[in-house]
Design a protein around this nucleic acid. Structure first.
Lengths: 232, 232
DNA sequence: GCCTTTCTTTGATCGCGGTCAAATCGCGCA
DNA sequence: TGCGCGATTTGACCGCGATCAAAGAAAGGC
């Protein structure tokens, strides 16, 4: 039994993402302080939490759902810069303006914190700052690996790469259906392609027996080795 | 006059990058501790300091020169993921393996540190860790902005963007020559294009009077507004 | 259930940028 | 100054992926 001084906040006690998120890397007293700053934000699919080139006064940790980070050109062309899964950190401590928008793809809940108060707490809790640093390095490496895909891979290689990563992230065995949380347009925005090209390549792979497409929002990997080869 | 206890290390006293680098964000006593860990590494243009997918036991701060971060596919296609200018931090604290190579483009000098010792010091000096965090956020936003270029911009827009950024980074006025530290191949690797396309677009802009190409390794901006428009 | 709306698929065509090839430039060096 | 080699430019051509257009399939509303 934990004493009153060590009690974990109710909201955190049964939170499954604590084992993968920042808040699982700090001790209970720091967690209690972090929790006093936090508000739970519920976001419907399609609504935007933070806007590109506007100042943002909140940061947060994704609790449930799925969000995308995007940047756009004036003429409307859009590129998805990354996805934020449960446990991921969003927002920019120590910077006023956002360089990208953050929009919910699925209904999502986010533990949000005042940016300035989070910054202050990070300054006082080295474990928190270090966990955030390690996570940011991972995000940077993820972003850079995606640059190789965007700069040098063909359309087929891009689609195969995404399918492979999705299947692996789900730990799916060959033949087992893998949920696909993104629409065709969202896949195109992630891969830097058009919706038509995405559709064509997926059905090309399906016709050749590498994958199957049992429904719009799922797929199965029939020949993992071949899919890996196609991803280059 | 500083007392002996506060004396700045000789190597740092006259170092011009201290005002832009991590080492300028920490107090003198922490700087002295950091300095005791450091070795000066001299790198000839073309030689590689850190290798993709190999473990790295050093991190460092670029002092002079210019380096590139690159990732490759098995078949030899290469993408430049970023450039490291004087003051930039390279390497991955808290991670054993590199996800990209770090190669000198020009002769360079780097203050290097044992990765594990740097990690230990960062844990003891919150200012150091915070400065590294802020720098990493900036690197992440830089990388993500480049993703928009790689995913959604045309060849002409990519070339114009690079020329514009280079001119702005040099604070060059219209008509004034801007040094171009990259070869055509290196430009192509940064932009996700081929050398032929880069050459064609640069000469197209020169013929239309937007820029001039007085030498292979320099250019001038003749019509800044038009160049900005071309960058989209 | 049926209708509307939106998303996806498929087809036809076009143009950008890659590929292959050759000429030319520029720099180091004898 | 002329030579040699790598880097750059230029040309010809082609294929990939974008664009435009239309049909088909799901999803939501009444």
């Amino acid at each position: 039994m934990a004493s009153a001084a060590e009690a974990m906040p109710d909201r955190c006690a049964d939170c499954e993402i604590r084992r993968v998120a920042l808040c699982g890397q700090i001790d209970v007293s720091a967690l209690r302080r972090l929790n006093t700053l936090s508000h739970t934000e519920r976001l419907r699919a399609g609504s935007t939490l933070l806007w590109e080139s506007e100042s943002a006064d909140v940061v947060g940790i994704v609790r449930t759902g799925l969000l995308k980070l995007t940047a756009s050109l004036e003429d409307g062309r859009e590129q998805t810069l990354g996805l934020a899964f449960p446990g991921d950190f969003i927002g920019r401590p120590f910077a006023a303006d956002m360089e990208h928008s953050v929009t919910a793809i699925a209904d999502s809940t986010i533990c949000t914190f005042s940016r300035t108060r989070f910054e202050a707490l990070a300054g006082e809790v080295p474990d928190l700052q270090q966990a955030l640093l390690v996570r940011t390095f991972k995000d940077l490496d993820r972003a850079r690996r995606w640059m190789l895909l965007l700069g040098r891979k063909s359309a087929g290689e891009r689609v195969a790469s995404l399918l492979l990563e999705t299947a692996e992230a789900n730990g799916a065995d060959p033949g087992e259906p893998v949920p696909l949380p993104l629409s065709r347009q969202q896949i195109a925005d992630v891969l830097g392609l058009t919706i038509e090209t995405v559709s064509r390549k997926m059905h090309l792979f399906a016709r050749s027996g590498v994958i199957a497409l049992p429904s719009l929002r799922s797929f199965t990997v029939e020949r993992p080795g071949e899919l890996a080869r196609l991803a280059a």
